[in-house]
Each structure stands twice: as C-alpha cells, then as structure tokens.
Design a binder for these strands. Structure first.
Lengths: 338, 338
DNA sequence: CTGAAAGCGCTTACAG
DNA sequence: CTGAAAGCGCTTACAG
C-alpha cells in the first residue's frame, strides 16, 4: 500500500495525492481532492513517515534526554513534554543518560543520526558538549539545568529566587538554625539553590554555618544520608531547605528513623512540585514548578529556532503543606494554595 | 556529507562504504576497508538512519506506550527498557496514553506510520485494539497488563501468586482481618491480584468480607481514598494487601491522617518494588518485580518475532520491610532481603 | 489545477 | 573483492 496505489485508485498522480494529504504546496480541485480522500479511505493507506522524512528533511520527531528516568521530577517534565508535543503531531525519542556524560554523548549522536528535528536535554553537567547538534543544525534547548556556555536556549525557573523564597518562608516560621541540603556542585541548579538559601539567611541576619550544609546526590539516597548526618549532629537545626523533592523524601525518612519530628523539631521546605510531595508523611511544603509551562516553552524554543539563544524563566509557586508548619500534619488533606 | 563523499575520498564506490560500515553483506579487502575507515574519520561522516531505514526497511526504533509517565512503576519499566535497548543500538519512541484508549490508539497509529520495528505496550484496558500493528507486521509485546485476547506475546509476573504470597505473609504475621485495595476491574492485573488475595484468605479459612474490599484507581489518590474509608470503617482491618505501590503510598498517608499506626494497628504489603517503597514512612514491604528481567524478556520477544505468541512469566521477590511488621519501623535502614 | 520526473541517502541483488 | 544501478516511498520544483 503506497502512494502510487492511492494515486491509481483515485485516477490521478502521486503528486496530487501528496498535495491533498499535506494541504499543499499546490492547490487541488475540490472534486479531485474528494476522489483522493475516498481512495485513501478505501485502500486504508497510511503514509510512510520515513520516506516522508527522507524527502522533506523533517522527521517530526524530537529527542528528549534526561539524566534519570526513575526520578519523578524528570518524569513529570517528560509527561508534560509528551503531552504538548503530541498536540502538534510531534513524538519524542527517549534517552536516559543515567547521569553519565559518555552515555549522554552517545544518545546525542544517536539522535542526530536519527535526524531529530530538535533536542530537549536536561544535561548531566555543565560541561555537556552540544556542538555536534549545533553543527548538524539541530535546535537544542536545555531544561532545568543549564551549562556554563550561554550559547544555548534555556528554560527553567529562577533557582536563586526559588531557594530564597523557600528559605524565607522557613524564617517566617520563626526558624533560625536553617540547614541546607543541595545537589552536586557540578550542577548550576544546585549551586543557585544553595546561593538562594544563603542570600535569605544573610538578609535576615542569620548565621550561614557550613556545618549545616550538605551537598549530596540529587536523589532519595542523597537526601537520606544528609538527613542522617543532619539529625545526629551536635549543631542544632530547626529547619532545612532541601533543593530537590527526591532528597526531601529521603530526608523525611531519615527524620523518621532518628525520631526527629517534622515540622515540630525541624521544618522542611523543598523544591520541585511533583505529585510525591503531596503524599509524603508529613506532606511536603515545596516550591512547585509549572511543568506544563516549562514544557510549552521548551517545545516552542525547539520548534521555531531563533538566530540567537533565548532564556525563558518560568514562575513557580510556594505550596504550603505540613512539613513547614503551615498546616496540621494529621489534618492536612494534601491540598495546596496554588 | 553523504556516503558519496566518503566513497570519493576513499576512492571506491558507495556500495563498498556500506559493506564496511555494515560489516556485510559482502566481504571487503582489508586495505580497502582501511581506506574507507580513514575517509569516514577524515570527513566526520555520520550515516543517515532515515535513509538507511527507508532502504533497509528497519528503523532500529521501537515504540513504548505506557498509561502514565508519572507513575514510578511504569517509569521503572521504561528505565530498564531503555537501558537494555541502548545496549543493542535500539531507541524508544515514547508514548504516554494517559490511561485513555483513544490516545493510545493514536499513539499506536503514529508509531506504525513511523515504521517502528516493534511495540512494547502497557495497555490501558483489556479491549485495546492491536490488530493494526499485526496487519503492519509489527511485533507487539504486552508488559505488566494483558488483554482478553491471547494472540499477543506477554511479559509479566504471576499476579495471582504474587498477591497470594503477599497476603499469606500478612497471615503469617497473625493478621486475620485482611482488607484488599486493588485497581479497576477492567485490568486483568487488578483482577488477578484480587483473586490471589482471596485464595490466600480462603485457604487459611479467613473471612473474605466485601466490606474490606476497595477497588480504586491504580494511583496514589486511589489508595488514599481507599485508606480513608478503610480506616474510618466499623469493620475491623488489621492488615491490607495493596495491589500497587502508588496506592500503598496514598494508603500510608491516609493511615497517618487517621491516626492508624502501620504496622501496629494495620499491617501493609504492596506490589511493585519501585525505589519509592524503600523510602516510605514506614518503609513498605512489597512484592518486588524484577524490572531488568521484565525488560530483557520484552525486548527479546519484540526483536525476534515468533510465529506464535509467547507468554513469559518472571519471578518476583517478597521484600520484607517495616510496613508488615518484619522490621522495626524506626531502625529499618531501608534494606531488603533480596 | 495537474503530472512526469528528479531527488532525498541509503541498501543490495546482480554482473563482473 | 568491487562497482553501476535499481529501488525504498515520499516531496517538490518545473513545465504544461
């Protein structure tokens, strides 16, 4: 079943079949169009997008590379991206770099050779090499994490500000000995969130004590280990700003094991806003990112390539739940003030 | 930069370039091979897989369709699948059907027209129509959930047995009033797990009380709502078998809100084995699925199409943690007995 | 408004 | 062991 069969059945040429199927680039007489449409229906013809891609140069396929598919934050991003993309007939090739730069490079090469129309990547580190994509003329947009190099379009939140707001909220609860759990310093996101925490403390005249700072992996285990240390340390900690939700989940577990009550003993605010935060025990107060907005902007940047790189900064929302002390832990229905 | 350029630089024909790049189907003299390899390196040539796909008929691309990308269970599956696939140079096109049959059908059509070499799908329901893929000659394998129709290859665990083992474990802890939280009856997985729960109760001579049965959505909210009802009901419940980990997370939260202590008042065992179970409060005892095994088998079935449909049943492991009473809630290090 | 034909970048019988 | 050439199923100037 190819385009030739349809043309034959419609008594026309393959060119005309293309014109009606693609709505252009040439006009087609209404009667002819109808015959073609009927022939398509009658033959059950399906266009071959591989052939189409070879001839037209566009695959209508994008590449998505995330550092870890088992991290709900990246998954939430993927969920939204897939949703927006499907609305415009675009599909994502999926890549999980496993936080490994080599693996990431392989994926990029693989996607380039598969001729993706664009690349959305959450890079594993600041050193990520994207020049091969640029050379191939493939638009790239960075999500969540950025690179040292400013030549690439970027979508994300203002991480310094997000961390500042979160920390300030803890200060508003009367907390003074506020710890920090953030990610590896190779990630600008982790750096910026650490910075925001510091800014908030300093402008409130509160101590910035390195003994309350823990930089670990951006995952549950990292947060868990940090929590164990934090909650068995001599240095008092009556609140913690945690730079990611996965880490917060681990930290909450450590608190439970150590007998530290959240928020009574130690209040917690995190960043991300995945569904997990709503069902934590206690429910997690968090800086909620607007996944759909991030996804829409990323898709827009990758679809209409600009001459110059653009950076889009999305808003975020502080969602007050139990872990900071805003709602009763046991009566909290998991709702938010969004 | 095309194959012709490389051929020119190597002083040979495009056919020979293909032969060396593909290691066949014709032999190439060592000296010629070297010249070609050098030319490839010198020109920085990258094969165009779209052209390759059109000529060869194989895209080296698979389609993956899951009902919900924000469900960590499907994500864990995706993670493993992507990993195994990448080892053999295969890539996945990603589809999130959002538990919607129409959306799922669109994805299938889209993937077929993109000429995927195979389809791995976690179907939204038993009625899922896969005939178009079969007509197109595309191998399909069902993961986790199965269909009424047995004509399609399947990979999963023995859900009746998994539920039976989990429930029996609760019985072993001396529990007698054991409730059930399972998924929608349109899913055979949910049905089978409900059945296993019943089998265990009956063979222990324990009551199968419909008032302790809750069938809800396979997500956190479903489990949460079921938990609220379960824990405020007049019917005593000293244990619950929960058919999915997402539901268990919601149920744990409901228990927390209702002041029900887990496992003291009510013991809990779930099914799935995602990383989330390890960091729950209390940590969740669960039937852990072997994601890598499931993924390997699925990939194998989809890569080497059989004449007849095959069903592969993978083993599972009962991971004993705090929620069933096996380990102390506060001293549990999140380990397992795997 | 329509059609014959070149071309997209590969693969692979076929002939040598 | 090597090469000229047909073909994969589309798109799209170009000519009419």
């Amino acid at each position: 079943m190819t385009r030739a069969d349809v043309a034959l059945a419609a008594g026309t040429s393959t060119a005309v079949v293309s014109y009606v199927l693609n709505d252009g680039p040439r006009p087609v007489a209404p009667a002819t169009r109808r015959r073609v449409l009927e022939a398509v229906a009658a033959t059950g013809y399906r266009p071959d997008s591989i052939a189409r891609a070879l001839a037209s140069g566009a695959t209508r396929t994008l590449g998505l590379i995330v550092p870890d598919l088992s991290n709900p934050f990246f998954t939430a991003l993927g969920h939204s991206l897939e949703d927006v993309a499907s609305n415009v007939g675009l599909v994502f090739l999926l890549g999980d770099s496993a936080e490994d730069a080599v693996r990431q490079e392989d994926l990029i090469q693989s996607f380039i050779s598969r001729r993706v129309d664009g690349l959305v990547v959450v890079p594993v580190d600041e050193e990520t090499e994207l020049s091969s994509a640029r050379d191939a003329g493939i638009p790239v947009v960075l999500l969540d994490r950025t690179l040292a190099e400013p030549e690439i379009s970027t979508v994300g939140i203002d991480n310094v500000e997000a961390a500042r707001v979160a920390t300030e909220h803890l200060i508003g609860h009367g907390r003074t000995d506020i710890g920090l759990v953030s990610g590896p310093s190779s990630l600008v996101t982790a750096e910026a969130r650490a910075q925001g925490w510091e800014v908030a403390l300093r402008s409130a005249g509160l101590p910035v004590d390195p003994r309350r700072v823990h930089r670990t992996g951006f995952d549950r285990r990292g947060g868990y280990l940090a929590g164990l240390e934090l909650f068995s340390s001599d240095v008092p900690v009556d609140a913690v700003f945690v730079a990611s939700e996965q880490q917060a989940v681990g930290l909450l577990r450590a608190a439970h094991e150590r007998g530290t009550r959240v928020p009574t003993d130690t209040a917690v605010v995190a960043v991300d806003g995945t569904e997990a935060s709503e069902y934590c025990v206690p429910s997690l107060s968090t800086i909620s990112q607007r996944f759909d907005e991030l996804a829409s902007h990323a898709l827009e940047l990758v679809r209409v390539p600009r001459s110059r790189a653009r950076s889009i900064v999305c808003d975020f929302d502080l969602v007050r739940r139990a872990s900071c002390g805003c709602t009763e832990a046991t009566s909290d229905q998991g709702g938010s003030d969004r």
